[in-house]
Nucleic acid binder design. Sequence first.
RNA 1: GCGGUUGUGGUGAAGCGGUUAACACAGCGGGUUGUGGUCCCGUCAUGCGUGGGUUCGAAUCCCAUCUGCCGCCCCA
Length: 439
Amino acid sequence: MNKYQMPRGTQDILPNESRKWQAMEELFRQFAYVYNYQEIRTPIFEHTEVFKRGNDSSDMVNKEMYTFTDNGNRSLTLRPEGTAGVVRSFVENKMYGYPDLPVKMYYMGPMCRYERPQKGRQRIFHQFGIEVIGAKNPYLDVETIALGWSILNALGLSNLKVHLNTLGDDESRNAYREALKKHFASDINQMCADCQRRYEQNPLRILDCKVDVDHPAMKTAPKMSDYLNEESQKYFEAVKAGLDALQIPYVVDDRLVRGLDYYTHTVFEIISENLNTTVLAGGRYDGMVEYFEGPQMSGMGWALGMERILLACEAEGIELGEDDGLDAYVLCLSDKVQKEAFTITTELRSNGYRCETDYLGRSFKAQFKTVERMNAKVAVLVGEKDIENHTVTLKKIDTQEQFVVSLNQVVEKMDELFPSEEEHECHCADGECTCKKEH
RNA sequence: GCGGUUGUGGUGAAGCGGUUAACACAGCGGGUUGUGGUCCCGUCAUGCGUGGGUUCGAAUCCCAUCUGCCGCCCCA
């Protein structure tokens, strides 16, 4: 029994919870549509080199990847993140030649990372992300952040904080990196082992350290902002001004560095204060398209963790995708009438009524409990007496009204009780119209 | 990868060497041979994450292993 357990860090999304996933996904797609992003679906595995690029020092690519060799002896890796595959595809499909740049894409799906699982951190988890490639304009940084912010707001999340920083361009960052190394050179030996490692691999990350926060050298450490060249500084100012104009609240966090090595200029994270973790994060990347042997083009993107979003919703008491219940439940009160009960069920279904019936020969009482549990609007009682009279009883649950109708008039009666959708579908007047008709 | 902790039916849990493995909820059957949500009665784990071991005897002790969770690292 134990050997059929699912692998560590994986999960089943069960029938009773898939509904909220769908509701969330639908909302993502709606926002993507309005902001004019189109979906891109890339493979769940890629050649390892797509993710493991050159001098990447991040843990994600160095120790958290699911890498395997296929039968053709190629090294493949289960995608740990979405951006690399999208950029690879952008170049491979020559999207840089599209007439309308930038190309705006979104993706949604599972990512795999070999990590120690915890709540909100699994080995297979799901991300929704966006990428805008082929233009470098602070308004795009603002647009993408605004999109993320709006999505989280639309879900009803409120205890959120946007952290913003800039890493500047290569020139600025290299200057800063050197300054940091110089600054910490004399103290690094007294700092924690992780920091000593970071010193070599990615000195910017020393600033993230929670162990050495109080070390005197930390407090006197040089700031990124002092090493930004004029262009980088101007870019960052423009991003901030854009966010201000949209009244998106943020805090500039000059210790925000991000774990992925490809970022330049804007980086940001949206943190759920209830969960005390990041739910959405991203930034600008200038060098990636070139890395994949495309032209020099900049990109901007972010990803959100869908499991974490759901946890955040739960923490804030937000319910997603509530079930309206059945239109009708057909009670089959004797095995002698199963045929008739089944026929009625089928008829209702083919007329668009969401409908269920009993297949277990359960008692009247038990079936009525199901009516309640499934939140059916109508109970259709089919018993031997009814069938002898070629009738059936409909009971409207909310009003307790009962109607005896002939066998072939069940659908008709339902139509009468619940007037056709079409007359009610269009809410153009109150501004919530979702119908596709012309007006 | 490191440190800590956890695991008993569909669910929440009690039991901590000898119990028929408590209790509650849900489910099912009945009281009401066809009208639910209240009430009453009955029923529901040959088995306590998995595999070994100690013992006359193990859910209870020991070892290993897996999983969930917390912290570190890192990240969405």
